[in-house]
Nucleic acid binder design. Structure first.
Ligand SMILES: [Mn+2]
Ligand SMILES: [Mn+2]
Ligand SMILES: [Mn+2]
Ligand SMILES: [Mn+2]
Lengths: 217, 217
DNA sequence: TAAATTTTTTAGTCTAATCTAAATTTGATA
DNA sequence: TATCAAATTTAGATTAGACTAAAAAATTTA
């Protein structure tokens, strides 16, 4: 049984190794967790003793199989709770993360599995991220960034890379959400900004926005 | 904002002062919490500094108004979650306490209030205990112990005093639950055991059982 | 490749929450 | 009311998780 803190570290390492592929650096976790690098080093040692990560001084960490499983159990709970908050408790997708950050630590297999059943076995959370099933398996669609969608080829928004409330509320105001059909009408060469059709409306978005939106082509 | 531990102490003090009326002794909390008396003394001092309890050396503690409010906010969450687990997640009433013990610490007013709305503003939890509303007000029925129910006077089970899984499962086997109509057919003078009619079946229960069942006369 | 910079670790400190053992106070008993 | 037992507090130690400051290693730059 892990402490709340070690669970957050494992999850952070898991997410970091998804994007970085391979070993994860001390500072990258320090930034994610909001702790000092020296604290992260301490935790790396602790996790290493528990055989949840492989750690070599100055070389960063990587999750062991057991570490991945533990991380995925947290991710599963996090995303199931986010789904519940949106589907039944009137939360908006920009409000759920903070609360799920706490709920993900509740220890009860029965609770997790019954929640999953109650939600009718959802496969993706409100941000379009895949939810590991009971066996910790998840299938993600193959997806591209909106920056990669060819001109005049219809796509559908299926997720976001940046989960910050600021970005999510910005998308709300632009009426872009999961499921919104999107068409790139024009790509401005000068600054890579895009004119797109999102649902019924035509609008302009910056490159930075486009590279945080996932598209099913 | 309180730590998980201080919240559990406040709740324990609240419950103890409900039954004991007045100040609460160090050992009584030590037993409830499962800690040593010396640890409890330390916590009493901390809570006293935060003005959540009134504490005088060797004289025990009593909650301040602010302490009562804080305790009731925890109790509210505990009982709402218990209700949710039973009504939507297929938990039995003997399984919910342990999980609610964790869920009660989740910090989100919106979550609590939306959960309450989702459950349609329940007034009592699965054990028959009253749920404080948003204003922390709760009205409890007036109730008596089954030991006090007069012979041949119809009553209804509306709660239990002992919430332990052992007792609750025992009641399940006897088909006694919240709402079960109960009639005392005979009281044995020798050992105060009772012959009762519970729902459709007639059965014998000990005094100890009877004094843990609340009845609406 | 040597120097400078950045990253990471070590050493030492702090706080919250716990404990044990010893001292103190209270309250009951003789 | 003096004595004793029980309850409570104090003193001192421990553990997890964090921090700062300084040292060491790795990496980048000149
Ligand atoms: Mn978390
Ligand atoms: Mn999410
Ligand atoms: Mn609790
Ligand atoms: Mn209850």
């Amino acid at each position: 049984m892990q402490s709340l803190s070690t669970e957050d570290y494992l999850k952070a390492i898991y997410h970091a190794s998804q994007s970085d592929r391979g070993t994860v650096a001390t500072t990258s976790i320090a930034n994610k967790i909001g702790a000092k690098p020296s604290s992260v080093t301490d935790m790396f040692k602790k996790l290493s003793e528990q055989k949840l990560v492989k750690y070599e001084k100055y070389q960063g960490v990587s999750l062991t199989n057991e570490g991945v499983k533990t991380a995925l159990r947290i991710v599963r709970k996090h995303r199931l709770w986010e789904s519940f908050l949106v589907s039944h408790l009137n939360f908006n997708w920009d409000e759920v993360h903070q609360v799920a950050e706490q709920l993900e630590h509740i220890q009860s297999e029965k609770l997790t599995n019954e929640l999953e059943r109650f939600l009718d076995y959802p496969t993706h959370d409100p941000h379009g991220d895949p939810i590991p099933n009971r066996a910790l398996f998840m299938k993600s669609y193959n997806k591209i960034l909106l920056t990669e969608l060819p001109l005049n080829k219809e796509g559908v928004c299926i997720g976001v890379k940046d989960n910050s409330p600021d970005f999510l509320r910005y998308l709300d105001r632009r009426q872009i959400g999961i499921g919104t059909p999107i068409l790139v009408l024009h790509r401005e060469n000068f600054d890579q900004s895009l004119h797109i059709q999102a649902g019924n409306s035509t609008l302009m978005i910056t490159q930075k926005t486009a590279e945080n939106i996932y598209i099913k082509p």
